[in-house]
Every structure is written in C-alpha cells, then in structure tokens.
Simulated assay, not measured.
Amino acid sequence: MIYQVQGNPVYCYTGGKAFQAELATLVFIHGAQNDHSVWALQSRYLAHHGYNVLAVDLPGHGRSAGNALTSIEDMATWLLALLDVAGVVGEAKASLIGHSMGSLIALETARCAPDRVTKLALLGNAYPMKVADALLTMARDDEAAAIDMVNSWSHCTSTQQSAIPGFNVQGNAQRLMQRMSAINPAQLFYTDFSACNNYQQGEAAAVAINSQQCPTLFVMAKQDRMTPVKASATLRSSILGSKVVEIANCGHSLMTEQPDAVLTALVQFLK
C-alpha cells in the first residue's frame, strides 16, 4: 500500500488485506538500516488473523521516498501523520510494535500522543540506546564495514541456518542492509544510529504510558549483544505493569532468527 505522507510516497506492507475500520490496527516499525521485510512472518500472520497491519518503510528506507529523518522525535511525528492518512483517526487507536530504533519511535509516539496508542510491544529495546563512538564513526566513514560488524553482533551462531533450505539468516540480513545503502547512499546507517544515540525522552514516555495505563511488552533476546536484556531494565522498571519475554538461542535480529517465538509472544500479548 502506498500512502502520501508529508509530501512523499510511503510504503506500508498490509499482508494483502484492505484496511477495515472495525478491526484493531497494528503498526510494525523496523530498526536502523532495515525495512518492513524484517516483520514478514509476524505481520502477514496477524494480517490474516483479525488485524489491520501497517508494516512501514520509514522515510529513506525500502520503498518509501524522502530523506531519512534525523531524530526519533521527527520519526514519531511522521508516524502520527501516517496514521492520519491511513485512516487510524478519531476514536481509532493503534498498537505499536517496534524493533530497536523502531522501539524508540514507538515510545516517542506514545509520549506525544498517548491517547492514540492502545498497546506497545518493544523488541530489542535499550534506553538510553547509546551507540559506541567507534561504531558511529565507522557507520559514517565506512558503511560497508559497519554493516559487516553489526550483522556479526546481531546474530546468534546457533541460528544461522533457517528451516528454509539454502537460506542463511545472517546473510539475508546483511544483503538487506546492503540494499538499503544502494538505494539511499546518504549515510543512512549513520543517520539512524545518531538518532538512537541522541534520544532522551524515555523517562517522559514512561510517564505518558503509565498515565494512560498502556499495556507494554518487552521482547528481548538472551544472546543479544547490541541491546542486552539488562539494557532495557531501567525503562521496564519505569513502565508500571510491563511484561518481558526473553527468547533463547537468539541475537538482536530476533524477528528473523526466532520468528515463531516472536510471533507467539505477540499473539499472546495482543489477546
């Protein structure tokens, strides 16, 4: 589905289903140097089991035009504009499901417009989401090397081979990031990482979430070296009643490394 948002075409994967106003809406938000495809299994399943699904390509990513946005705050503003255009308006609300950078966008959206968010599912979250100076510099000066390093850190060695014959999880993730570089050469990885590094509204977001009693789920990977389980501890303790699911044999790219476990956690939470 193509929408026009802030003057640019925006792509959202809907699972092949038309928007139905009577259904609950789920918004999937990808992380740095990624696109909607990282949610392939979860978004398609839920689109065919009673939900409107919008798996977005952020500006400058995937099939969405425009420059990549430079702050989490701007991305949240953009996401609210997308909800308006998509018809999630008035009394309609959305559940936001974000991974890594996407989890910060979901948080900030809940801070800005808590009355528009029903539930939050935050995957591979950390707050603050500080990026090492060496990695920021590498992303700026040698994006190809940064892609290689991040993919090495983001996967658990025990889950490299998919159930699909000939499919390698880490190799597919690397090719996706390389494709993002090819279609948007404007230091996309550095822009995304800088936005994560600079975001400082997590505590205020927790207050907004608590005020609206918004159910919140953290889905974390036990072998995650990018955003370890402990990196979300402060935020988890600040959001009253939040739940956490820890997935074993999995690194930061948990939606593709352990897709069924992630789907199970989301289905149980959304019920």
Rank of each mutant, 00 (worst) to 15 (best):
Ile2Leu: 07
Tyr3His: 14
Gln4Lys: 14
Gln4His: 15
Val5Phe: 04
Asn8Gln: 12
Asn8Ala: 15
Asn8Ile: 15
Pro9Cys: 03
Val10Asp: 01
Tyr11Met: 06
Tyr11Ala: 06
Tyr11Cys: 11
Thr14His: 03
Gln20His: 07
Thr25Pro: 07
Leu26Thr: 01
Ile29Gly: 00
Ile29Met: 02
Ile29Ala: 02
His30Phe: 04
Gln33Ile: 14
Gln33Thr: 15
Asn34Lys: 09
Asn34Gln: 14
Leu41Phe: 11
Gln42Pro: 11
Tyr45Phe: 12
Leu46Phe: 08
His48Tyr: 05
Gly50Ile: 12
Tyr51Thr: 03
Val53Thr: 10
Ala55Asn: 10
Val56Pro: 10
Leu58Met: 14
Ala68Cys: 06
Ile72Lys: 12
Glu73Tyr: 10
Asp74Ala: 14
Met75Gln: 10
Met75Thr: 01
Ala76Arg: 13
Thr77Tyr: 02
Leu79Pro: 09
Leu82Trp: 07
Leu83Asp: 00
Val85Ser: 11
Gly87Trp: 10
Ala92Thr: 12
Met101Ala: 09
Gly102Asp: 02
Gly102Val: 05
Ile105Glu: 05
Ala106Lys: 15
Glu108Tyr: 00
Thr109Asn: 02
Arg111Glu: 08
Ala113Pro: 04
Ala113Cys: 13
Asp115Met: 13
Leu120His: 10
Ala121Met: 15
Leu123Glu: 06
Pro128Ile: 12
Met129Thr: 12
Met129Arg: 14
Ala134Phe: 05
Thr137Arg: 08
Met138Lys: 15
Ala139Tyr: 11
Ala139Val: 11
Asp142Leu: 13
Glu143Pro: 00
Ala146Ser: 14
Asp148Leu: 07
Asn151Met: 12
Ser154Asp: 03
Cys156Met: 05
Thr157Arg: 10
Ser158Glu: 04
Ser162Met: 06
Gly166Ser: 06
Val169Ser: 03
Asn172Met: 13
Ala173Asp: 07
Gln174Lys: 14
Arg175Asn: 08
Arg175Leu: 13
Met177His: 01
Gln178Asp: 11
Gln178Trp: 06
Gln178Pro: 00
Ile183Trp: 03
Ile183Gln: 03
Asn184Ser: 08
Pro185Val: 07
Leu188Lys: 09
Tyr190Lys: 08
Thr191Glu: 00
Ser194Thr: 14
Tyr199Gln: 00
Gln200Cys: 00
Gln201Pro: 01
Gln201Arg: 14
Gly202Thr: 12
Glu203Pro: 07
Glu203Asp: 10
Ala204Arg: 14
Ala204Tyr: 04
Ala205Glu: 01
Ala206Tyr: 07
Val207Trp: 01
Ile209Ala: 09
Ser211Asn: 15
Ser211Tyr: 06
Gln213Arg: 13
Met220Cys: 12
Ala221Glu: 10
Lys222Ile: 02
Asp224Gly: 05
Thr227Val: 07
Val229Lys: 00
Ala233Asn: 09
Ser238Asn: 15
Leu240His: 12
Gly241Glu: 03
Lys243Ile: 00
Val244Asp: 02
Glu246Gln: 12
Ile247Ser: 00
Ala248Ser: 12
Ala248Gln: 06
Asn249Phe: 11
Cys250Glu: 01
Cys250Val: 09
Leu254Pro: 05
Met255Glu: 03
Glu257Met: 02
Glu257Ile: 08
Glu257Cys: 04
Val262Pro: 00
Thr264Pro: 01
Ala265His: 05
Leu266Cys: 08
Leu266Gly: 05
Val267Gln: 06
Phe269Thr: 03
